[in-house]
Design a protein around this nucleic acid. Structure first.
Lengths: 189, 189
DNA sequence: AACTAAAACTAACAAGTGTTAGTTTAATAT
DNA sequence: ATATTAAACTAACACTTGTTAGTTTTAGTT
């Protein structure tokens, strides 16, 4: 099993609740109740509600940043890099379903680390865009609007947390392949 | 200009605030302040905070339902129907940027009308899926996983409210064409 | 000028908010 | 058995929440 501190359990429980109602609508008493303790007891393990949110979001954002760096610096073709980005999103999302919901919906409630998060996100998008632009230059991709391509792919990848859980016994590898196909080659015959 | 009742102004102002922080984090005092009045005064025009949310979301959901009905019942090819769905989303989103944010992020805070909203959404997705399945049968679309195709298109279309505002002087028609191209034909050369 | 109706106001409510202080219990190490 | 520490508890705080009641102001009509 995992090495699970009590703090980790609080964060995990919080993420589940955050997905259902969003950060603002979840109270410390809600979180405590879900763990079978009183709200005040939470503070033996965490500093604040804000810290819970921050741990969830920043940890995920840094994972994406780290993996993007590897993809970016590889010598693969642009198409292959895009496929690796798809796989990256599917993998992280399948392992962090609830947390991904906060990453997508609750980031604006970050306080101290909001700026840092926005920086990571902007850098990620820039790296993504560069890969697309390189693909166009190298004649791998159609000569279309890179902004629209980025938007389309990233929107889909960021919504994975909504759809992945609906497919119970999902073959992650197969799904990744199918999704890459649709995102890159479209659906037209 | 528009026929704008005071109630409409409240709803519009609320939608702007809801986009920034989400329904739960916006207080009646926030809304009042943005309108230059006191919170209690809002209740001369609306019944509750819940009513504001409901007006925003149900009105939009019904617009989508209504238009989907027209597309569904037309005699156009599946590809053309899909293009019309893309146009539908771009049009409604470009005219209701803030409201679309609530539709996507705050629907779970609906109370009395939650069930009704979920029904509308489910029906919409089913109609969308049927069009894709028909396209596969008729050999218009690749013989892929229709669920993945639906997911990919719908995720992108539902995220439009995040991206459209970033492009200030956007040619809506051109954007619709570009987006349809990417969603249907992909980005591969 | 007097009347009316819409829309603002002040004041307050009961309930809920995140968080702190101080205390007790449970589990572990000596 | 005793001391120690982690983790729970109770009680309370200062503040914010949506909302109501009752009143005053504003603007348009007779």
């Amino acid at each position: 099993m995992k090495y699970d501190t009590r703090k980790d359990q609080i964060i995990q429980t919080s993420a589940i609740l955050f997905q259902k109602k969003g950060f603002s609508a979840v109270t410390m008493r809600d979180i405590a109740k879900a763990m079978g303790i009183k709200a005040a007891s939470l503070y033996n393990h965490i500093k604040s509600k804000q810290e819970i949110l921050s741990e969830i979001i920043i940890s995920l954002a840094e994972q994406f940043t780290e993996q993007m760096k590897i993809i970016k610096n590889s010598n693969d073709s642009s198409i292959d890099k895009l496929k690796q980005i798809v796989a990256l999103h599917v993998n992280i999302t399948s392992k962090n379903q609830f947390e991904m919901s906060s990453l997508n919906s609750d980031w604006m409630h970050l306080e101290a680390e909001l700026e840092y998060y926005l920086k990571l996100r902007k850098n990620y998008e820039n790296d993504f865009r560069s890969i697309i632009e390189k693909g166009i230059q190298d004649n791998e991709l159609i000569n279309g609007n890179p902004e629209v391509m980025l938007f389309s792919m990233l929107s889909t990848l960021r919504s994975l947390y909504i759809w992945l859980p609906k497919k119970e016994d999902l073959d992650i590898g197969k799904f990744t392949t199918e999704l890459s196909l649709v995102l890159i080659n479209g659906i037209n015959k």
